[in-house]
């Protein structure tokens, strides 16, 4: 959520709530024909990675038998994801523990970083969430065929469905499978973008109504405070949802339901 508004929207009270999502190139870079410019999005990815590295390495550095605060955070996240994988995928899923852990912590860090004023929310861009979701989709599909061979096609034929319904059910199953990366990525992206847009709109109201006195300005401000709490919850929840859906997809690939 960025609150800078005076320089944009042509001055006055008109605020463009989408302005906060703009990608700004900080250092133009080019690898061959690939544009690898370091943008504000890249900056917050690097900040998230740096904070996670710091958390993980400093947190576990003392290797205390009785953990302190930082070590507790590290251990609780570890156990949280490990239990999530065990409950949803079983012990076969523990192979993918580093991936799911990295995924969850990365998205959580990006979402929470986005809640810092003036920060950029990397996960509010569909291309980022879609890339993650599509990578998971491709990986899980390859995994499914690697484990079950062509038997993985049976995944689209649910058990106990009468034969005359199969022409209807199978296409539905196929479509629902193929739309997984879209639903997975849009869920995260839309939640983050919508939350930040709403916050920005209410921030605009604070200024617009604040012109009529303190009381009219305080009302949208109170809403903003409540919404900020809600957005922090959404930030954590969406990281959780992304991770648990990844677990469910892994389970489908490994065990076919």
């Amino acid at each position: 959520m960025s609150v800078e508004n005076a320089e944009h929207g042509g001055g006055g009270f008109a605020i463009d709530p989408m302005h906060q999502f703009e990608i700004k190139t900080l250092f133009p870079m080019q690898f061959g024909s690939i544009d690898a410019s370091f943008t504000n999005s890249s900056l917050f990815m690097v900040i998230a990675a740096a904070l996670l590295t710091l958390l993980m390495l400093v947190g576990i550095n003392r290797r205390a038998m009785v953990p302190g605060r930082l070590q507790s955070i590290v251990e609780l996240s570890y156990e949280f994801i490990a239990n999530m994988l065990r409950d949803n995928v079983g012990s076969a899923g523990l192979r993918f523990f580093p991936f799911v852990f990295t995924l969850f912590m990365f998205i959580l860090a990006l979402n929470l970083l986005g809640m810092v004023p003036y920060a950029f929310t990397v996960t509010s861009h569909i291309i980022v969430t879609f890339a993650l979701a599509f990578f998971i989709f491709i990986g899980v599909t390859i995994l499914g065929f690697a484990v079950h061979g062509f038997g993985f096609f049976k995944f689209f034929v649910p058990h106990g469905v009468p034969a005359y319904l199969l022409p209807l059910v199978v296409p539905i199953e196929v479509v629902s499978y193929l739309t997984r990366p879209i639903s997975l990525s849009v869920r995260l992206f839309a939640n983050m973008m919508a939350g930040h847009t709403v916050l920005k709109v209410f921030a605009g109201f604070v200024i617009a109504l604040g012109a009529f006195g303190y009381l009219p300005g305080l009302l949208p401000l109170a809403f903003m405070v409540a919404l900020t709490g809600l957005e922090v919850l959404v930030a954590a929840l969406q990281a959780y949802v992304f991770a648990i859906l990844t677990c469910i997809y892994l389970n489908d690939a490994l065990h076919m339901h």
Binding site: A49, T53, I60, V74, F99, T102
Partner: peptide, 29 residues
């Protein structure tokens, strides 16, 4: 493209850091 490039770089770094360094340490503890 720049977003994807940096996503790949940062995610790959995080994955290696987590799987090679951080998570084994947590597991040991």
């Amino acid at each position: 493209v720049p977003q994807l490039v940096w996503l790949v770089i940062v995610f790959a770094y995080l994955y290696v850091m987590m799987s090679r360094v951080a998570l084994p340490r947590v597991a040991t503890v």
